[in-house]
Simulated scan of single mutants.
Amino acid sequence: MTAPTHRSPTARDRLRTLLRDLMIIPGLSGYEDRVRRHIARELTGLGIASRSDRLGNLIATLEGDATAPSVMLFAHIDQLGLVVRKIEADGLVRVERLGGLPEKALPAQAVLFCVGEGRDVPGIIANKSHHATSPDEKYRVLPYPELYVDAGFGSAAEALAAGIDIGTPIVYAPKVIELAGNRIAGTSVDDRAGCAVIVEVARQLQKAPQHPTVHLVFSVQEEFNLRGALTAAQTLSPDIAIQLDIILATDTPDMAARGDVRLGGGPAMGLYSFHGRGTLNGTIPHPALVNLFTDTAREEGLALQRSAHIGALTDSSYVQLVNAGVASIDLGYPTRYTHSSLEVCDLADLEGLTQLLAAGLTRIDGTFSLDRDDPMR
């Protein structure tokens, strides 16, 4: 009888496992501790020491070629959600929004009050009974102050006894759904997928014969006006910042006019981002980094999609302004249905992004120029 063979896990297997694990851990902006501790344990398993700062960022440093520009590779660990604003006498809960939740997608969503590990409380955002909905109400999007969460309590005292109080964080009920074709749907793909990629890149850099000093940063409060990565950059003073996050997929009918980024078409590079609402900020990448990853993709036979859009921005928009300026670029993975409770990404894109980063980082050595007037560029 032949003994069964045991296949060693591939990079895609590891990305799938870690992404699934991270997506089910709640971590609203400002309350990311559980996520940070999980990633710290993953790094410890790789023999990589890490530390956290006062704001909650997790930082690890892979020492490398001291003559090469130093790199900060980062992704955010927080997610958007809600906080408790008021508990009504009947036990129903009013909320404030934290981050860019789409109000039209909130009614009838399952949520989780993050009271503490083993003590979290499920609830649902109420949706008025269809049988009592007037014709004009059917097409009205309720502003979030009019919404309320029902956790089954009959009084405010019951909610308080369960650990729910003013300021308690609330997230979409964590879930992971495996779709066809290695696609993953669920909560907080943004940006737990980027975090999983960084861990896998760290694993591969440990085997590389040469790389620059790379600071791995898992940042906090990105969804709360892009705060955590800025403090990390001020401390680390990197020469280069590479930010990993979602890139808007445009391969569905509602997004077709926004660009040419396809889910499953490989990782993507941001050539222009601008928020355009409230926070007037964005990122135009440093040309040396655009060339680096364009050339790396071509030489390694990797797909690399390109994105330029208004309506979103990332931590790099502030990190680039630290000290005398940081050469910055946004890289990422195509994502559908962003900021909803069921975002979708493709594991093949995450694997491709890992390969692109691992190969590109090893090309940064003492001769790598960030001079804007370099005659070779």
Rank of each mutant, 00 (worst) to 15 (best):
A233I: 15
R140L: 14
E63H: 09
T17D: 13
P287V: 15
A348S: 15
R336F: 05
L226Q: 09
R140E: 15
G45K: 03
G118T: 07
L248K: 00
Q243I: 12
G228V: 01
R20S: 11
R119M: 06
L142P: 03
A312I: 11
R7S: 13
L147Q: 04
R183I: 06
A110P: 06
P238T: 04
K175G: 06
G123R: 00
S188W: 02
G311P: 08
L28K: 02
N291Y: 12
I24G: 01
V71S: 04
E96F: 13
F293E: 10
I25G: 09
S340L: 01
E32S: 03
P287S: 09
L292V: 09
A327H: 13
A40M: 04
A297Y: 10
S129Q: 05
I198F: 02
R16Y: 12
L55D: 01
I240H: 05
R372V: 13
P253K: 00
E117F: 09
E137A: 15
E103Q: 11
S70G: 08
V319F: 14
H309Y: 15
T61L: 12
S8L: 15
G45C: 08
S317D: 11
G366A: 11
L302H: 07
G30I: 10
Q206E: 08
R192C: 07
R363S: 09
H76P: 09
I166N: 03
L280H: 13
R372P: 05
G30Q: 13
V319D: 08
S155G: 06
G27R: 00
A312Y: 14
A159T: 08
E96A: 13
Y337L: 09
R51E: 14
L292W: 07
S237N: 14
D365T: 06
A241P: 15
T10N: 05
G154M: 02
S188L: 10
Y148Q: 04
L46V: 08
G100W: 03
N57W: 02
N57D: 03
S341M: 00
T44K: 10
